[in-house]
Design a protein around this nucleic acid. Structure first.
Lengths: 226, 226
DNA sequence: TGGGACTATGATGTATACAATGCCTTCCGC
DNA sequence: GCGGAAGGCATTGTATACATCATAGTCCCA
């Protein structure tokens, strides 16, 4: 019955390297050598190469001809650019989700919001790993509920990247509480079909996240994403 | 100083296939066989394969494991999704460009707007190929002037795709004239550093383009929150 | 005659060998 | 001692051989 679910070496390499990147396994600027990775994973260079090219297309590694893949360093400017795009794309997604989300999706969103709250405040210490994963699912579900299939691939990498270098551990108790309440606001706005509300909340939510991650004010002339 | 710029087989394959797609060489649903393309281009499967994967990451071909690459059919829904994203991303870009564009960039934009006008109305017949290319450069330059490097890669594929299946030949004389005037509006808004104006013009410009390409009113789901 | 399994075929997935490129060291000349 | 050029070495780019999978056609059996 249960077929071996043979997975391709390319996928193994891709998820393995991606996970390593997310875990900060290689310092910024590291040279990811195809031979090394292949040997480590017990496969040949070919699938490793494909995985690296795919990661490069998502800008998770930098690629230069004849030089190979390097781990990019995430500057404040990079993060500013990413947050600026997230403000636009995710607020758009939230607005569309308010119009198109199914009752089932809304129910899952509400459950996720509750789970995030529990992971943040249910124990003595926030479970940052779980928060990250749940938050990720929450945002991705809103994007999915927007019903614009192309939006998924555009946003996918933008959501993950900031958390590679800046984690939820940067959120103090108050910032975390505000973030949690944003999620409940979003659920209500989407459940009520109020696109304008959903857009506004999401814009505010991403801006707040940016503030925590980057610290500097976004409005000033100096810290702008440009 | 100008080095021979040796081009890799991968790049040859990529641009060749991409060009073929843009020219409508293969009908929607066609199976792009690696062996065939390799033989035709006089290279091996390896670089062809890499090129196809890259095109797949841009969603210019569809990829399924063990089945290979297929030419996607562009449904009205696809185009709707693309235009919806262009409205968001390019208007954002226009606003940023108004704040950050250099005088040189503004000058080039103005020249491009004039060139487009000339290509459209300078001769007996509009030069659609030239219009397409100039229009492309105009929009890309605005994106570049926005100063958000990540925006480039996000928008790149969105600008090209609609023109694969729907060309400027769909613009009648009046629609073309309006499009041309939008371009001049954009130049003025950006030259004057008026971000709000630039955003508004670009939103209107993309919506107008959508109307020509798709014909149907953008109502219903598109009545989204802005 | 219909249906299911098997096999033939051709495609993609992977491994490996070879070519080309870039970098670094070393050696020569000054 | 310094500068530059040449060559070796490590790495990526490409080609090719082999493995695996999907599909279609055929044959056998009920």
């Amino acid at each position: 019955m249960n077929k071996p679910e043979r997975l391709r070496a390319t996928d193994v390499a891709y998820s393995s390297i991606r996970q390593g990147l997310a875990a900060g396994r290689w310092p910024a600027g590291s040279h990811l050598r195809e031979t090394e990775l292949a040997a480590e994973l017990g496969i040949s260079r070919t699938p490793v190469r494909e995985a690296l090219r795919k990661l490069a297309s998502e800008q998770l590694v930098q690629f230069e001809p004849h030089l190979g893949a390097r781990v990019p360093g995430w500057s404040d400017r990079d993060l500013e650019e990413i947050f600026a795009l997230r403000v636009e794309l995710e607020s758009f997604a939230a607005g569309r989700a308010a119009l198109h989300a199914s009752p089932g999706q809304v129910a899952v969103l509400r459950q996720l919001a509750q789970d995030i709250e529990h992971a943040a405040f249910g124990g003595a210490e926030p479970d940052y790993v779980r928060i990250t994963e749940l938050n990720n699912r929450f945002h991705r579900l809103i994007v999915a509920a927007a019903g614009n299939r192309r939006l998924d691939s555009l946003i996918a990498t933008l959501i993950d990247i900031p958390l590679v270098v800046r984690t939820f551990a940067r959120f103090d108790r108050q910032a975390m509480a505000r973030s949690v309440s944003h999620h409940f606001d979003l659920v209500e706005a989407i459940a009520g079909g109020n696109a304008d509300w959903a857009v506004a909340v999401m814009r505010a939510h991403i801006h707040a996240g940016r503030q925590v991650m980057l610290g500097t004010p976004a409005g000033g002339s100096a810290g702008q994403a440009d």
